[in-house]
Computed example of a mutant assay.
Amino acid sequence: MTVAVDAQPTTSRGRPRYEGGNIGTWVGFKQFVYLAEDAVLQHYRDRGNGPGRLFHETGAQLSFVEHAVRLPGPVFVDDEVWAEAVPVAGGAGAEDTFAVTLTVRRDGQTVPVLKGKVRVAFVAPHGLTGELAAELAGRVVADLADLRPALPGPADFRPGFRWTGTIPYPHCQFSDRMQHSGYVRDLEEVVHRYLAERGISIRRMLTERNWIPAVTRSQVRLLADAYLEEELHTVFSVDDIVKDVMFSGRMDCYVVRDGRIVHTATGSITHGYGVASGPDAGQVAVMDARTQAALLWDAS
Rank of each mutant, 00 (worst) to 15 (best):
A226L: 06
V235L: 02
D239L: 11
T164Q: 12
D186P: 06
H180F: 01
V190L: 01
L195D: 07
D225F: 05
I212K: 10
P213H: 02
G182L: 03
A224C: 03
N210S: 11
G182F: 00
H171S: 03
Y194A: 03
I241E: 05
L223I: 10
E208V: 07
P170R: 03
H180W: 02
Y183N: 03
W211Y: 10
E229I: 08
Y194S: 11
R198T: 07
S218V: 00
H171F: 06
M205D: 07
H192G: 02
V242E: 08
T216S: 14
G182S: 04
S237H: 15
E230S: 05
S181E: 06
L222W: 01
P168T: 05
H180D: 00
S175H: 14
L222N: 04
S218F: 00
D240L: 14
Q173L: 15
P170S: 05
R198N: 06
W163Y: 02
Q219E: 13
P170Y: 01
R209A: 09
D176M: 05
Y183G: 05
Y169T: 11
Q219F: 09
L206S: 13
I241Y: 05
Y183W: 04
I200H: 12
V190M: 02
G199W: 07
T216R: 10
T216E: 14
L222P: 04
M205S: 05
L206Y: 14
L223Y: 04
